[in-house]
Computed example of a mutant assay.
Amino acid sequence: MKLEKPVTGGPCWTELGTSDMEAAKRFYADLFGWRPGTGPREKAGGYTVAHLGDAEVAAFLPLFQESQPVAWNVAFSVTDADAAAEAVRNAGGSVIAPPRDIFDAGRLTVARDPGGAVFQMWQPGSFSGAGLFNAAGSLGWVELLTRAPESVTDFYTKVFGWTVHASEQYTQWGIDGADFGGMVEMGDGFPHEVPSHWLPYFAVEDVDTTADAATRAGGSVLMEPTSVPDGPRIAVLKDPQGALFGIHVAGQEG
């Protein structure tokens, strides 16, 4: 992505809701070199922050309901979580979890777009989001997979004011033209039971090597390493508990 740090309207954080915290921490530590950290937020329901060097880059949390899927969640930064929740409703989305304070770290709300994809909105307090973007092992791109491209494009531009760079092949989202993510229409090739969702992509030094390492560690490859025309080399993986995530070559953002 062309963002180097969290900014208002852009992605600021990603966290994994998982059925096996210890296994997930081992898998991503081996894959990306993450180090589980300690701090006051980790005392809340098992929430654990992953570090890359000194930077906070992602988090793990246990599932709190049987119906909750194992999945990565993407959060976008807002200046006012309550106003953002109202903007979601006015634009045709819905609020799943109303705004609430997370200690002094910030204020969080969870929403769903008109196509069904769930996302988070984060009003920073003492915590603004990831301390590193685009470097190997950190968040480098976010992608929306949806069956309702027209309605969600209207929705996100209204809620966040995103700029849209669209071609016949791909649509990219940006903040004042600085692209940070994209959108893929879910056609007939996607199983009907797979819902619309946001997918984080993590930067890596070598996509093929990382995909092989994920398989050896008990994960699987959903989309084989592919070189995008005029773009990076990418792959989509599944961790041992079933969470999907993408990888792409570091240094080829946006």
Results as ranks from 00 to 15, higher is better:
D80N: 13
F127G: 00
R41W: 10
T153M: 12
D176A: 09
Q65H: 15
F133C: 13
T38V: 12
D212L: 04
Q120S: 13
A87S: 15
F133I: 12
T157Q: 11
V70K: 09
A130I: 08
T8I: 15
G131K: 05
D54W: 05
E42S: 15
V159D: 14
P191T: 00
D208L: 01
T226W: 07
H165I: 08
G174L: 13
P114R: 07
Q252W: 11
A97D: 05
D82K: 12
A135P: 04
R100D: 10
G219R: 02
A130F: 08
P149W: 00
P98H: 11
Y156T: 04
T210D: 00
P99N: 02
W72V: 00
S167H: 06
A130V: 13
L139D: 01
E205P: 00
Q169W: 11
D176P: 07
F245V: 00
V118G: 03
F103C: 07
A135W: 00
K2L: 13
R41K: 10
L61C: 05
A58T: 06
T157N: 03
G92P: 09
A250Q: 09
A85I: 10
E185R: 14
V194Q: 00
R147I: 03
T210F: 02
E86I: 03
F32P: 05
Q252M: 13
I102F: 13
T146M: 10
A217H: 12
Q252Y: 10
A85Q: 08
G181R: 09
S227G: 03
M1N: 14
V70T: 15
Q241F: 06
F27K: 06
G187L: 02
F27S: 06
F133A: 14
Y170S: 03
L244W: 15
Q68G: 03
Y156G: 05
G92F: 10
L31Q: 02
L132G: 02
A235S: 08
G53S: 09
R112P: 01
H248T: 04
H192K: 14
V74I: 09
A105F: 07
F160Q: 07
V110R: 08
A97C: 01
R216S: 04
D104R: 04
D176L: 06
G125T: 07
W13K: 14
V88M: 09
T18N: 10
P40F: 10
L61T: 07
L108F: 14
V249A: 14
Y170A: 02
I234N: 05
L61G: 11
T14I: 13
H192T: 12
V118Q: 12
A243W: 04
A50M: 11
F64K: 15
D239T: 02
A136H: 01
Y28S: 01
T38Q: 15
I102K: 03
D176T: 05
P229E: 05
E66Y: 08
G93L: 13
F27N: 08
V207Q: 02
A81T: 12
V249R: 15
P69S: 02
E205Y: 02
E56F: 03
N90I: 06
P36S: 01
S19P: 12
A243D: 06
T14W: 04
D154I: 05
T38F: 12
D80H: 10
H197T: 09
S167Y: 04
G182L: 01
K43A: 15
A166C: 04
D54C: 06
P195N: 04
S220A: 11
P240K: 07
P6L: 11
R107K: 15
T215G: 03
